[in-house]
Amino acid sequence: MSFGVDRSIDLRHDTICMAAASHRPSPIAWLIAPAVLLFVLFFVLPFAVMAMMSVYSGNPVTNPNAYPTTRHYERFIFDTAGIFHDALWATLRIGLVTTVISLLIGYPLAHWMARMHSRLGHALALTAVIAPLLTGIVVRTFAWMTILQDKGVINTTLMSWGVIHKPLPLMYNEFGTVVALVHIYVPFMVLTLIGVIGRIDERLEQAARSLGAGRIRAFVEVTLPLSLPGILAGSLLVFALSISAYVTPSLMGGTEVLTLPMLIAQQVGTSFNPNFAGALGVVLLLVCLVIVIAYNRILARLSGEQGLA
């Protein structure tokens, strides 16, 4: 190891030493054991079972006649009933729209909060953002139902004012689903963005302004590109959460909306076809995986380009 050596000269040597040192396991490495256990027990194992089920005709443990088959995947891919692909597209569409709207709502809010100088103001705003998380998803979805349904607050008010004569279709469709999902997932977007935007030095924007950029230009040239990692991370989080959402789409979507998670629940609960449900689960996971990999690629490229790594 080098001590007190000029860092600028000795950077490479330092890095090598640090890399060598990091091979030695930390004495508190065992502290991650609970997390590993949890992950194996409640993710790896169930997923292995699900993946296994998806390539068998029945449950190979209880049914000795079960045989390996690709028919569940074929059923999804060829989709003779014409609903599986629709469910996939609906899932992705709802996920995408929810993500974009959450970003449009969340970014200005996060920017405002990250730049807030008053500690009290920041604490209050943060409480307001986090408070909805303290209520269960089911409760919040029911709240939206009382607001959006045909005899809900909005429709009865508008009708009593004579603005409309028959109720607007505010729920039991994708619109209502997206509204409720946005409400539920905006805090995740905001919290992710606050961290990233808060770490961007305000003086960077001031420097841009002193160099002749107006406020908007300074934002677009400096703060926005520097907050891209946060935008990507927040979007990824919200997208993953909304395409896997089950309660909200089933309550808010009614019979009009069918997403993959709802389809999976149907296959397990009503059709008693856990093998096909397993195949759908694998498909949903693959979709997520593709998006996460794409995200990592984009982020790595941005980091490389912008020296943010």
């Binding site: 030095d201 960077l204 420097a207 002193s210 950029a213 520097l226 380009e305």
Partner: peptide, 18 residues
């Protein structure tokens, strides 16, 4: 600010890292 035509050097330099 952006029309004042003044150069400014900050203590932290405020160079654009990207």
């Amino acid at each position: 600010v952006h029309r004042r035509d003044m150069g400014m050097v900050f203590q932290s330099y405020a160079l654009f890292p990207h």
